[in-house]
Amino acid sequence: MNVPTMAELTAQGKQPDVLFWVGCAGSFDDRAKKITKAFVKILTHAKVNFAVLGTEESCTGDPAKRSGNEFLFQMQAMTNIEVLNAYDVKKIVTACPHCFNTIKNEYPELGGSYEVMHHTQFLKTLLDEGKISIEGGSYKGKKITFHDPCYLGRANDVYEAPRELIRKLEVELIEMKRCKINGLCCGAGGAQMFKDAEKGNKEVNVLRTEDALEIKPDIIATGCPFCNTMMTDGVKNKEKEDDVQVMDIAEMIANAQDL
């Protein structure tokens, strides 16, 4: 897979239009890597002039900040900002709502101001500009529900871009009883992903999966690698993995266009 890095392009005296911020999950998590690759396939297909930071990318600091370690967060932030500013990055797209939120909202005060887009927003613009076309393909007619990531939805009021993309897949978009501003968390945010839950009577991801299974979808669509993990685990917990898939919107679009 041909993925140009900022270092390579700069060496050739080129400047990409957009930086794809892959994020830690997108770089290292086996499930999330598939999302990363699907998104790169779409970018390449749409002939987007993009690059990644590759080995120069580092955690945005989101889980550190949400754990209370402001020092570590700002160290990460300022290191990343130095790199981004050195490459004169103007526009960033990422498939992780946590990276999206942190870079978009928390970096400017620390010296890093960029136009930041979630990949669903970016794909929506590609679609609007006619750079990609979306057809249903194998998804045509399927029942799909979208699980709103907290850091995309409530945190940044992005609800429509992912839904418009899903509708383009000629599917039946069905909503869970709690959706959009009322969406229930998958349980991973605030650094919960990296620790066991406190004592309780249920796991949050199981509760959220129950919301989804209640409306009997074929696919639970997500826009966040952590939500994806949590919902996938939830579906397994309910032993429904043969009936219900958990897919990122980028994966569905790439699959539908046979990329």
Binding site: V3, T5, S27, F28, T36, K37, G54, T55, C59, G61
Partner: peptide, 24 residues
């Protein structure tokens, strides 16, 4: 542990930063 990982290798998991682009 997660914060230690971020501090040492720039990711919440114990993976080497040099392997960040291996997925491609």
């Amino acid at each position: 542990t997660m914060m230690g990982n971020i501090e040492n290798n720039g990711a919440p998991w114990p993976y080497n930063q040099m392997d960040r682009l291996n997925w491609k």
